[in-house]
Design a protein around this nucleic acid. Structure first.
Lengths: 343, 343
DNA sequence: CTGAAAGCGCTTACAG
DNA sequence: CTGAAAGCGCTTACAG
């Protein structure tokens, strides 16, 4: 049943149906209510494609997952953000389409296809890693986009973002470990995330330097992303961890968990002989034994603000008075949470 | 740019553009390729809303999450299934809309709204718990739907499904524990999932009975869904677990993990004094210490088959020769995986 | 406040 | 093989 048939059925015109169901003040309250009741009764709902075609609004927001995203179960932090985003956007009446950077066909990236087919009103981008072409496209099409969490490429300010200030996170860890001069400082890096990794490491160094620790005194080890991978890394450097008291900052909690596991396996006592700090504060870090000390990322603030901004951008789009709003740029400061893996 | 402008720009008609980009054999290979090249060059892509309006196909599949679904991080098994579904559907060229049963407005359930607005071509339903109205609607609208994983309401055969045979899973656990007469048998149930819980329990009982264990000898405890909740339950029954050797089947891995945690905390040695079997085989069950024994659900088969069936239903829809295909009903058998929490 | 009419951008039967 | 034309189901400027 389309709106014409429905209108005829209840004895009004198609425009009146449209206005009533869209809550237009042009049709009086009473009548609106009556039409809505009838719609409910007959199970009539406006067709979304026709509506979108006319209004160029789909009422759908795309959540873009980064390249090499293996899954929600592997990347708990993304799952955590996703859960909160999903809740916020649904609360605000939007539907959600999940888009994966990896799934592009031929030369058309997934993002580009979504933008060009007009399937979504805007994008929430988990981790900034857009190509130059994609940035250009977003600029041309004025597609509302907000990035969140972190950036694996150079941060330019053409796009709005709410990022975790991981440099500051690193600093907090460095500042904390600075009080333990007899522990050898170790940073476990993850090189796929080039720029973000550099930020964390730089902050760590800065925090330590304030306590007189030299850059040369810091050991850098490289891990892949994964609990097993990180655990294996510890095994590879068994002698080192057995012969030194170490104070370790891991690129993220997943690696931190693997490090803790590896240390336990080779018989290093935590936190006496080795301290470990992760980053992100993933939801089940405290189920583990021992519970991981970490840098808490303030997702509870980041997510609603990101969603709000995106929706404002979508609603403001095309409105003359809105103009080209200035992009928003925020770095949210993590906080250090001490649990069982630090003294 | 719309297809008319694009067609004019490259000097062909709108229908030809449409046919070429839709790979119609009506336009010769060579020309098709040329038009596609031009489309790429000018960044032209067919508008999805217009297309859907005409064809009543959105090329989008909805994944319906059950009521009370708290999130991917809390319900790892759902996240695991979601990850695989997402991969399968994208591989087959569909976009994905995530739909949550909880997010309905007023009297219109999320599912009903999606069906009536025609936003998706069909639904993959994680866990069967449709209301009678929703079933009726699906029947009337002939919306392609397949359920998977399990059912919390009575299973009727009007809808296709691929379920895990959790009754058989329970049986395997019962059969295994039957060999340990000196262990007191315990089933930790989760009552929100009424029917599925009953199936697991019934299977467990059946397995034990084959070894001569009486129903009266089985202790039933009720837990909420969650690691902490299950752990708390163990604490509440501390005396019981300290004074008996126990062989425990948990409703699912999450509860199983909590049980293990609780047992460790009260000082019960695993698996000597208490054996634990979970159900689902969630991805990181083996990161834990001790690694949880469990009943593996064959998601690797369930997911592709479910996706295949759904897509066949979508493609067959409306075709005369397709008729009303018989619904498919499958119960996939779990397998018992013994790790550290069983002898 | 209400309705007749145009048009959003496609696809597809139809004619050639 | 190709194009002119109709129509999918809405919204909205316009006239009343």
């Amino acid at each position: 049943m389309n709106s014409k048939d429905f209108a005829r059925m209840i004895g009004v015109s198609q425009p009146t149906v449209s206005r009533a169901l869209n809550d237009s003040p042009l049709v009086p309250e009473e009548k609106r209510k009556w039409i809505k009741e009838k719609a409910r009764e007959y199970g009539f709902v406006l067709n979304n494609s026709a509506r979108s075609l006319k209004t160029s609004r789909t009422n759908t927001i795309g959540i873009l997952f980064p390249k090499h995203f293996v899954g929600m179960t592997e990347n708990i932090m993304m799952a955590h953000l996703y859960d909160q985003i999903q809740r916020e956007l649904h609360k605000r009446g939007f539907d959600i389409m999940v888009v994966y950077s990896d799934t592009g066909e031929d030369d058309l990236s997934a993002l580009e296809r979504m933008i060009r087919t007009k399937k979504v009103d805007g994008f929430l981008i988990l981790r900034l890693e857009l190509s130059d072409e994609e940035r250009k496209l977003i600029g041309q099409e004025k597609t509302p986009c907000v990035c969140m969490m972190n950036a694996s490429t150079k941060v330019r300010d053409d796009i709005s973002y709410y990022f975790s200030d991981s440099e500051y996170g690193g600093y907090l860890a460095g500042d904390f470990y600075g009080d333990y001069p007899d522990y050898k400082k170790v940073y476990i890096s993850y090189c796929q995330e080039k720029d973000d990794n550099t930020r964390r490491k730089r902050g760590f160094l800065r925090g330590l330097q304030e306590h007189g620790v030299q850059e040369a005194d810091i050991t850098i080890l490289e891990s892949e992303l994964g609990i097993r991978e990180a655990s294996r890394l510890i095994h590879e450097h068994k002698e080192f961890f057995l012969n030194n008291k170490t104070a370790i900052l891991a690129y993220c909690d997943i690696i931190g968990i693997g490090v803790v596991q590896g240390l336990k396996e080779i018989g290093v006592s935590i936190p006496d002989q080795a301290q470990v700090i992760g980053m992100d504060d993933i939801p089940w870090a405290f189920w583990l034994d021992p519970q991981l000390s970490t840098l808490h990322v303030d997702a509870e603030h980041m997510v609603p603000e990101t969603c709000d901004l995106l929706i404002r951008m979508i609603n403001g789009q095309g409105k003359a008075e809105a103009g080209d709003p200035e992009p928003v740029h925020q770095w949210l400061k993590p906080t250090l949470i001490l649990r069982d893996t630090t003294i």
